[in-house]
């Protein structure tokens, strides 16, 4: 079943310097349970595409369906959880309070809220931090809390926009590993935007390579790696081969202007 399906999707921003083609004729299907990474240089439209799925941007041409309905309906039905680049936790709420926020908004009852908060805190390895305020946590922990917040309600899709972009590599490796575990345990469909080739190859079942001006898909790679992935899989020839293909795709998309 197609969870996300985009047909001839284009998005043009009108700016003072003339139109900017953020996305041009993008076609993509994402199956249920997929872990899809979007990789490409800045300006290739990967974040814009994710925002189109989330109904935060509106395509100027083409159609996109999410969970079998329009992106707007999917947003209204709360079909996805969205993790932004920054954790964006409210400083006046505790970690528990932050995770409870979408639950309050969606009208879950009190007992259910409590159960969900402790379950997702467990899931992201933050049990015991419920009463702490965001500033008492490190950047990596804050980002985990924000992932917990996106997992707390019943959405089958997780959209992640460079969630680990601001973290150092050691923390990032650790969180990547945790994210894979989480994906396995929750059986969600994940769309993940990243700058990093190893991150994309390590995490994904499907890698979408994008290129800029206009933003378009230049290659879609179905990963042959098994779903079970220890960190040292990154040293295997299969892994390096895929990474090589991604790099080629990025280079080809760039043309001569690098």
């Amino acid at each position: 079943m197609n969870i996300v399906s985009a047909q001839n999707l284009s998005l043009t921003f009108q700016t003072n310097d003339g139109p900017v083609h953020a996305l041009k004729d993008v076609n993509l299907d994402v199956q249920k349970g997929d872990f899809v990474s979007f990789i490409g240089p800045s300006g290739c439209g990967k974040t814009t595409f994710l925002r189109c799925m989330a109904d935060l941007e509106h395509p100027t041409e083409g159609t996109i369906s999410v969970n079998g309905m329009s992106a707007e309906d999917a947003r209204r039905k709360r079909a996805y959880g969205y993790v932004f680049q920054a954790a964006g936790l409210y400083p006046w709420r505790t970690i528990g309070g932050n995770i409870r926020l979408p639950l309050e908004i969606m009208g879950y009852d009190k007992a259910d809220q409590d159960a969900r908060v402790s379950r997702v805190l467990e899931l992201v390895d933050l049990a015991g931090f419920e009463k702490k305020f965001p500033w008492q946590l490190s950047g990596g922990m804050q980002q985990r809390a924000s992932i917990a917040r996106a997992l707390a309600f019943d959405a089958d899709i997780l959209l992640m926009d460079e969630p680990f972009g601001a973290l150092d590599e050691i923390v990032r490796d650790h969180l990547n590993e945790q994210l894979l575990h989480l994906w396995e345990r929750t059986n969600k469909t994940i769309c993940f935007v990243t700058h990093s080739i190893p991150e994309a190859v390590y995490l994904s079942t499907k890698i979408v390579v994008m290129s800029p001006r206009p933003g378009r898909i230049s290659d879609v790679i179905d990963s042959p790696l098994p779903r079970e992935r220890p960190l040292d899989i990154r040293d295997t020839p299969e892994f390096l081969e895929i990474a090589h293909r991604v790099r080629d795709g990025l280079r080809a998309g760039h043309g001569d202007d690098v």
């Binding site: 935060l56 947003r75 209204r76 709360r78 969205y82 932004f84 908004i105 969606m106």
Partner: peptide, 13 residues
């Protein structure tokens, strides 16, 4: 921030 407002939108608040 725009991000915080977008976040509210994703929850359909």
């Amino acid at each position: 921030s725009g991000m915080q407002l977008d976040q509210m939108r994703t929850w359909h608040a």
